[in-house]
């Protein structure tokens, strides 16, 4: 108990006069501000009662759109993307649904603030920005005036996508995918390597358009996938030109289709005429007829075709219908 009283005594009782003095001396004195300095009153009187400063509401200016000239430069008023503000846009806009009557106007209309606006991209502004960017542009090369020329000079088409998200990250896993397209005819092949190439690429070759499409997405970045795709293109090409030792062992029985040059038919024609098949004028159509006959199988058409070609080769009169 004694401890408490002592603390009380120390803190409260002793400081009482001091506090009172501080309180009085801080009181504002309104009436007698004489001269340069205020007068310090140690004792209060009713005359110098504390008057609270009246709060003045800040003046609210009328909407800016009221003062806008008709021929103002709108691009300077609304230079960039921004949320709709009714006091800045001098248009009588309305937004919202009301069953009866007109929709709510632009003031205090949250719906107008939600929707994205393109007030910063008005046609004159776009025109101005394009004009400003024009000095950085170069003319399109004349040598690439049409699509055929482009394809001729740049046979490889590399397709990759970048994605824009509304997020702090610019990464998107889809951006890693790289697609490479090119025409098979742009690569140099012989019969055998072409066949091998087609076997290697499988369904990546579209026989209707003649395009080979390679899609790579196994690496984590676009650059790596592009490099891998280019590696694939190179490796496929060179691999298709490779000839293994065992491929030489392929006999006529292993052929997947009939090739006239390798067969008895050519030898017998050469024997018959006593010269090379290239020198015989009619050998070409004869060879085609035989190839068709062997590859497509025996049918009325191929058979008749074969008969005709033999007649031409041997210089016999054309077949007449015997009744």
């Amino acid at each position: 108990m004694s401890v408490i009283t002592r603390i009380l005594d120390k803190n409260v009782v002793k400081q009482l006069p001091k506090r009172a003095a501080a309180y009085y001396s801080n009181k504002p004195n309104i009436e007698e501000d004489i001269g340069e300095f205020r007068v310090l009153y140690l004792k209060t009187s009713k005359a110098q009662a504390f008057t609270k400063k009246k709060y003045q509401k800040p003046e609210v200016l009328p909407p800016r759109s009221n003062e806008m000239p008709v021929d103002q430069n709108w691009g300077n008023v609304w230079p960039g993307p921004r949320t709709f503000h009714p006091a800045t846009v001098p248009l009588p806009l309305r937004q919202g649904y009301v069953s009866k009557g007109s929709p709510p106007d632009k003031y205090a209309n949250a719906e107008l603030m939600k929707i994205p606006n393109f007030l910063h991209l008005t046609p004159p502004v776009i025109e101005r920005q394009c004009a400003a960017l024009k000095k950085f542009c170069t003319p399109w090369p004349k040598a690439l005036s049409n699509d055929e020329l482009c394809e001729k000079h740049f046979p490889f088409e590399v397709i990759s996508s970048n994605y824009c998200h509304s997020s702090p990250s610019i990464r998107d896993p889809m951006a890693r995918i790289v697609t490479i397209k090119f025409k098979l005819n742009d690569l140099k092949f012989d019969e055998k390597s072409r066949d091998k190439y087609l076997r290697l690429v499988g369904d990546r070759y579209n026989s209707e358009t003649g395009y080979v499409t390679i899609v790579t997405d196994r690496c984590p970045t676009q650059k790596q996938n592009y490099d891998y795709a280019m590696y694939l293109v190179t490796a496929l090409y060179h691999e298709s030109w490779n000839v293994e030792a065992w491929e030489e062992l392929k006999t006529e029985a292993d052929m997947e289709k009939y090739i006239w040059e390798n067969n008895e038919s050519k030898k017998s024609v050469e024997k018959l005429f006593g010269k090379n098949s290239e020198d015989i004028a009619e050998s070409k159509q004869y060879a085609n007829a035989v190839i068709n006959f062997m590859n497509e199988g025996e049918s009325d058409y191929t058979l008749a075709n074969y008969g005709d070609s033999v007649r031409i080769l041997l210089g016999l009169p054309a077949k007449t219908n015997v009744l």
Binding site: V60, P81, T83, A108, A110, M113, P116, H165, S166, P168
Partner: peptide, 21 residues
Amino acid sequence: VSEIIVKRQHNMIRVAGIIRQ
């Protein structure tokens, strides 16, 4: 006095709303 509208464009965040004066 309105809901707080949060609009994001790329990495930009726009916070919109209506307040009292």
